Computed example of a mutant assay.
Amino acid sequence: MFESLGKYILLLRLSFKKPEKSSVYWKEIMREMVSVGVGSLGIISIISIFIGAATTIQVAFQLSSPLVPLSIAGKISRDSNILEFSPTISALVLAGRVGSNFASQIGTMRVTEQIDALEIMGVNAPGYLISPKIIASITMIPLLVIISIALGITGGYIACVVTGSISPADYLMGVNDGFDPLTIKVALVKAFVFGFLIASICSYQGFYTSGGALEVGQSATQGVVFSCVWILFADLIITSLML
Rank of each mutant, 00 (worst) to 15 (best):
M1F: 10
S4P: 00
K7L: 15
Y8K: 00
P19I: 10
P19D: 05
S23H: 13
Y25S: 11
I29H: 01
I29K: 06
R31N: 14
M33I: 13
M33D: 10
M33E: 08
G37T: 10
S40D: 04
L41V: 15
I43W: 08
I51F: 14
I51N: 06
G52Y: 07
A54M: 14
T55C: 11
T56H: 09
I57Q: 13
A60K: 09
S64K: 12
S65Q: 11
L70V: 09
A73E: 02
S77V: 08
R78I: 05
S80K: 07
N81Q: 13
E84N: 08
E84H: 09
S86I: 06
P87F: 00
I89E: 10
S90D: 06
A91L: 04
G96N: 05
V98S: 15
G99R: 01
A103I: 09
A103P: 06
A103C: 08
S104G: 10
I106F: 02
I106P: 03
E113G: 06
E113N: 14
Q114D: 11
M121W: 00
M121K: 12
N124Q: 03
S131W: 13
I135T: 11
A136M: 07
S137E: 00
T139W: 00
T139K: 00
M140K: 00
I141G: 03
I141W: 07
P142K: 01
L143I: 15
V145R: 10
V145E: 00
I146A: 14
S148T: 06
I149Q: 04
L151Y: 09
T154R: 04
T154Q: 09
G156Y: 07
Y157M: 12
I158Q: 06
A159W: 15
T163D: 08
G164L: 08
S165Y: 15
S165I: 12
P168H: 07
D170Q: 14
Y171F: 15
L172E: 01
M173K: 15
G174Y: 13
D177N: 14
G178K: 10
G178C: 02
F179L: 14
D180M: 08
P181R: 10
T183W: 08
T183L: 09
I184D: 01
L188Q: 10
A191C: 05
S200I: 03
I201K: 01
S203R: 02
S203P: 02
G206P: 04
G211S: 07
G212T: 09
E215S: 11
E215P: 07
V216E: 00
Q218V: 14
T221C: 05
T239L: 11
L243A: 08
